[in-house]
Simulated scan of single mutants.
Amino acid sequence: MLIVDKNNPPPDWIEGLRRRFPVEREMDRVLTRKLHRRSGPAYSPVSLEVLCDGMKSLLRTQLTDAFEVRDAKWLAGGASKLQVSIKLDWRHPELGRTTTPMVIRMEPAESIVETSRLREFQIIKAVKDVLPVPPVYWVDDAAKHFPYPTIVYGFAEGVAKPTGTFSNVTGLGINYGPELRKVLGEQYVEHLARLHTWDWTKADLSSLDVPGPGTHAVELQLNWWERVWEEDSNRDIPLMRVAAAWLRENMPATERLSLVHGDYRAGNFLFTEGDQRISSWLDWELGHLGDFHEDLAYTTLPYLAHMSEDGTQELASGMMPAAEMYERFERVSGLAVKPKVIDYYHVFHAYRSVVIVIGSGYRAARNGKTHQDLLLNWLMGMGYTILGHLRRKLEEIA
């Protein structure tokens, strides 16, 4: 058996993974870049001054009028990316001289989820007339100006959870309360239906590969996450091999290609407390073209839910019972939800979650590649709870 030092991966091993697990072109670029850089320096803290200098360097290539970058502050939240708020005094192409709050979103040396800033930029820009999203301004996907690939977008107004409410890491387990969840829940399902019925073919999504008609779109996703497991995992877990084999043997045909958010859940949207409106959808880094059931299954995962106040109902993403969410989605979208396909994607997402928290979370923290090493170690413990869910789900439907 070939033993590979995954902390110093040899070129022939990297090329072998690329052949075994063909993924989208952009994701191949991102994942291959990660492996080529893995034996390099660990993450070192980046100062606000360095980030502001990077922003100025980027702006000098984009603007001809005078500008000022000021009031830089670190933003909390998120387990994978560094985020800084700034204010930019500049000549806006539509508003003239103004001050615009913006966010610099940058990767660390290696992330728990290695993704593409270019893809994130294109998707947010494409859906601006479909869903509430922050405006996007610039992307430095080759890290010419910043230490790592970076996207710059507008600061979105709103909160992720009601004032005074507790939530777990990255917004998991938010309890909106009976009245607010009723209002937000309607918008939550309506926005998901709007996304999945939107005609993405007219948008600039060149960083996304389009699966062929009548194919199993999930195969590209399976290749992505099985490749990441091979790249990052520290030890063999037989259940993961069983799950990967089952997922490949039972791939559902994709009847309709939709833009999939990939992380559609509580904690990844903001809302304004005054009028109780969802003001912005965030974290599009896992977006891709695929089956709409993928998002529906993700947002109804048991470990993203919590019980109602009276203890009688499990509320999917803190919104409503899963059965009610499926029924509402069908009514709003006109698309038929197939329970067997939902079951399939429940297995897929459990598999993907384990890859992320036990595989990539371990590797990034072990090598000191991220600013969130303590958080990633904590998340690894959650991975074994998800493994238990994966085993039970396979026993239930296999």
Rank of each mutant, 00 (worst) to 15 (best):
A72E: 14
L131N: 11
P135W: 07
G77S: 13
A126E: 08
T115G: 03
D129N: 10
L88Y: 12
M106E: 02
E94N: 14
V136L: 08
E110P: 05
T98A: 14
E94P: 13
A126I: 03
S111C: 10
H92A: 01
E110M: 13
T98N: 06
I112P: 07
V133N: 14
G96T: 08
W90K: 00
T100R: 12
R91K: 14
K125M: 01
A109L: 12
P93K: 06
A126G: 02
K73P: 04
E114L: 01
G96Q: 06
L95C: 06
R97W: 15
A76F: 12
A109W: 01
V130C: 05
M102C: 11
R117E: 00
D89N: 11
A72I: 00
V136S: 11
L118W: 07
D89Y: 07
D71A: 12
H92S: 08
E107R: 06
D71W: 10
M102I: 14
S80T: 14
E107I: 10
Q83R: 15
K128E: 13
V84K: 11
H92W: 08
E107K: 10
D71Y: 03
H92M: 08
F121K: 08
D71M: 06
M102E: 02
P132G: 09
P108S: 03
K81N: 14
P132E: 11
F121V: 04
Q122R: 00
A79Q: 12
G77D: 09
E120G: 04
T115Y: 02
L82A: 07
V84D: 07
S85D: 10
W74E: 15
L82Y: 03
E107C: 12
W90G: 11
S85Y: 07
G77V: 11
V113P: 07
E94I: 11
V133M: 13
F121R: 08
L95D: 11
I86L: 15
L95E: 13
L88M: 12
D89L: 12
K87V: 15
L118I: 01
R119Q: 03
R119M: 06
W90C: 04
E120N: 05
D129T: 04
Q122W: 05
I104R: 04
W74G: 14
T115P: 02
Q122I: 06
A79G: 13
G77A: 12
R117K: 10
T98H: 05
L82T: 08
A109H: 10
W74C: 13
Q83E: 09
I124R: 03
R117C: 05
V136D: 06
K128M: 13
A126M: 04
A109Y: 00
S85F: 14
T99L: 09
V113H: 01
V103I: 13
I104Y: 05
K87I: 13
